[in-house]
Design a protein around this nucleic acid. Structure first.
Lengths: 252, 252
DNA sequence: TAGTGGTCTAGACCACTTA
DNA sequence: AAGTGGTCTAGACCACTAG
């Protein structure tokens, strides 16, 4: 199965667990072309004897390869190397969050916060009745005194909370971005799209009207599965780029 | 630990494996608020006695919860429910691929394919010398006769392949999107950003100049870790939206 | 029927944290 | 020292696929 005589072995004295070493060995074989897409991996028993590990250890390693989508396992048939598939690419919002948190001089300016009565659109998004009260907030994120993100959000008004002030502290998206948050939320739905900035948005972000931007829309739900926050974040396109990697990386 | 007296048990006769039932039970407890962010999960031994399963089964279930980032486990301390974190959101390119493949009437039109000599920019992206030959291709994806994606790509010219025709069949991104592909690639790097369409791009996509679009740039590498394809896909913003979910879903 | 992966057991030992 | 999670063993049985 291996192309050369010098086959790697598991180093039991290593800090790296045996199952991880096995994951790395197979990943390298895929990355270097020793194993090609479509090739069948050795059976579990062969791995056991080949590397002197127990079946559970082999299974754990293979499970990880399956999760990483480098191979696919089918009961009764075997485990096979998957071809490269662009659909596997995942873009993580962590990058955007890092922009927010690690930016040397990042601060958030609250532009506006007031009670608004829900129109049909807001009401349907928050699953309330038109005319019910919501808290509307507009925030601007500045990095090095440069506006980079513009956030608008509607929160359902909760009369059990003492003051508007209290709810302002919730600052849902801000809390979520900063990690310190926001007990009330247990689930969220996010979408991202490319948009042309309207005049007001462009003005706030100090770019020409019509400039391209990422629009990150969000709805957050509480424990009762009721929406409590609906809003969107406009991100200056010239400041944000999401990245992804696909395929075997030989490392990681 | 449970809020009510009626505690769920593992159904050994079910099609659902024991470890998955355990995953689902704990996920539901998180989703419904029985377990709050910061709460410590029962120790593994408690799970074993509570649900009458072996330690390995418990560990597998907890590993899955850790992978799903619903909980975090620290050696010597315990396992704790994680707060909702927007950074965990992942957008999958699979959605875009589905657009391509499941679109009722999707076809690809090759607008141009010719040899070009690499300028400094192309050369640096493909790690070749300026002046070396590359294959330049422009393709247009139409859905219901409407242009939705515009793809431009440079491939390193491989003199060992008999004809340009042969390399045209590689059609790297197309192959990757369709899944049937493209032996030569083993790794890829993708970025996505929001851009304003230039006049030529907008003309091809039949939208006004300056319209917002997703720009998906890609570089693919062969087994020797050498770049073989550099290109970009312009996606009409009004046709593409990426979605993500965060938090406990109680199902799935 | 033979071979494969999928699940599961009932423990063991270790490393780490906390007190 | 006690409690935690992290790793690993050496099997077992089952479900599925293929010849």
């Amino acid at each position: 199965m291996n192309a050369d005589g010098k086959t790697k072995t598991i180093d039991r004295g290593s800090y790296e667990p045996a199952y991880m070493q096995l994951v790395r060995i197979v990943s390298e074989q895929i990355a270097t072309g020793i194993l090609h897409p479509g090739d069948q991996l050795p059976a579990e028993g062969q791995f056991c004897t080949r590397y002197s590990v127990s079946p559970m250890t082999v299974r754990r390693a293979i499970n990880i390869l399956v999760e990483r989508r480098l191979v696919s396992a089918t009961q009764g048939k075997g485990t096979f190397v998957k071809p490269l598939d662009i659909g596997e690419a995942v873009f993580r919002l962590q990058e955007l969050k890092d922009h927010w948190t690690h930016g040397s001089h990042t601060n958030v300016r609250l532009l506006e916060a007031r009670i608004v009565f829900a129109d049909e659109c807001i009401a349907s998004k928050l699953a309330i009745s038109p005319g019910e009260r919501t808290i509307y907030m507009r925030r601007l994120v500045l990095q090095e005194d440069l506006p980079t993100m513009y956030h608008r959000e509607y929160l359902v008004y909760d009369p059990t909370l003492p003051l508007v002030e209290a709810q302002l502290q919730i600052t849902s998206l801000e809390g979520l971005l900063q990690g310190q948050n926001s007990e009330g939320f247990r689930r969220g739905h996010l979408t991202i799209e490319a948009v042309n900035l309207k005049e007001e948005e462009a003005g706030v972000l100090k770019v020409p009207t019509g400039s391209a931007a990422f629009y990150l829309e969000h709805i957050f739900y509480d424990f009762h599965n009721h929406p409590v926050s609906w809003g969107g974040l406009m991100c200056r396109a010239d400041h944000f780029k999401l990245t992804a990697y696909i395929g075997a990386d030989a490392d990681l």
